[in-house]
């Protein structure tokens, strides 16, 4: 029982960070209908920003965290402006968006490797939180795991508030429902798209710092985003609650797999799950089907 609870807590902690990544991806998908594969690159940059803010500038952790998140938000906006905006202006087919996103992802990952002062080396975050776990009864909860969960939960809470209760949030919902009609109703869809990229980028930065602390920082850390794509399919492409639930479930299933079966299969299980979802319920948990308007 103790082991079960222990795994559950670890799973929740990992899953909540997956959720941070998945909401950014899902937000963009729901508005622009394409998979932004450059999201992983943004997360990786977040991890590096956080690392350098902490080590080079010796900023306190909360400042470094927010700083990294703001930096990646700006990065995400720059990506949108340079790579996707020209395509939108041209009304290019969605295939071009995916390809462009992939090019951006390759660029981001390799510019880090190629830059002489960063390079392909693995870097470890300074130890900010002690490694001794907090004891709750017979449970030992890692301080970092707890922190990951708390920060992610706060972020997701803020996002829900933002989407459901602010004017911009409602405009985002309307735009995801029908971008053309929203534009006709006086919503500045260009601004909405920037906002969505900024939000996604902000959360990606936080996720990047958290993953950097949990594992290490290296140029390929963005590959972790694949998990959030899968989580998003799992929850239903384009659905925010789906992305969160899918991510948390994926996190839990992964930790249980490595805890009870073998850590070798931890990564594999995500893909097995993907196939299983596609067989059993291809729309995902929260996905809706809608008929194309001819």
């Amino acid at each position: 029982m103790t082991q079960f609870l222990q795994q559950l807590i670890n799973g929740l902690s990992i899953g909540s960070v997956y959720a941070l990544m998945a909401v950014g991806y899902s937000l963009v998908y729901s508005i622009m209908n394409f998979s932004n594969f450059a999201h992983g690159g943004v997360i990786m940059f977040g991890a590096y920003f956080g690392f350098f803010y902490l080590t080079l500038f010796r900023l306190p952790f909360p400042v470094a965290l927010i700083g990294a998140a703001l930096s990646t938000a700006i990065l995400a906006i720059i990506i949108e402006r340079t790579a996707y905006k020209p395509l939108r202006n041209r009304r290019a087919p969605f295939l071009y968006f995916i390809i462009c996103a992939m090019g951006m992802s390759i660029f981001l990952e390799n510019i880090i490797i190629a830059l002489p002062f960063i390079g392909p080396t693995f870097r470890t975050y300074p130890e900010i939180f002690s490694k001794t776990p907090i004891k709750i009864g017979s449970l030992a909860v890692g301080r970092l795991d707890l922190l990951m969960f708390i920060i992610s939960a706060i972020c997701l809470g803020l996002l829900v508030y933002f989407i459901d209760f602010t004017k911009i949030g409602k405009a985002i919902q309307a735009t995801s429902y029908n971008i053309k009609a929203s534009a006709l109703m006086g919503i500045n869809t260009d601004f909405i798209i920037i906002t969505v990229f900024a939000l996604g980028g902000f959360f990606a930065g936080i996720a990047g710092v958290l993953f950097g602390m949990k594992y290490t920082v290296y140029p390929q850390i963005g590959v972790i985003t694949n998990k959030s794509f899968i989580a998003a399919v799992f929850g239903g492409l384009g659905s925010l609650p789906g992305a969160v639930i899918g991510s948390v479930l994926l996190g839990i299933i992964e930790t249980f797999t490595s805890g009870y079966i073998s850590s070798q299969y931890r990564d594999l299980i995500a893909f097995v799950l993907l196939i299983a979802v596609l067989v059993i319920r291809p729309r995902g948990l929260m996905g809706k089907s809608n008929e194309d308007k001819a």
Partner: peptide, 20 residues
């Protein structure tokens, strides 16, 4: 070799934007 993939990535973006 290190810059190869950087250029690849950039080239893809530029091709998509200017000469898809």
């Amino acid at each position: 070799s290190n810059w190869r993939l950087v250029i690849y990535g950039l080239a893809v973006i530029i091709i998509m934007i200017t000469r898809p």
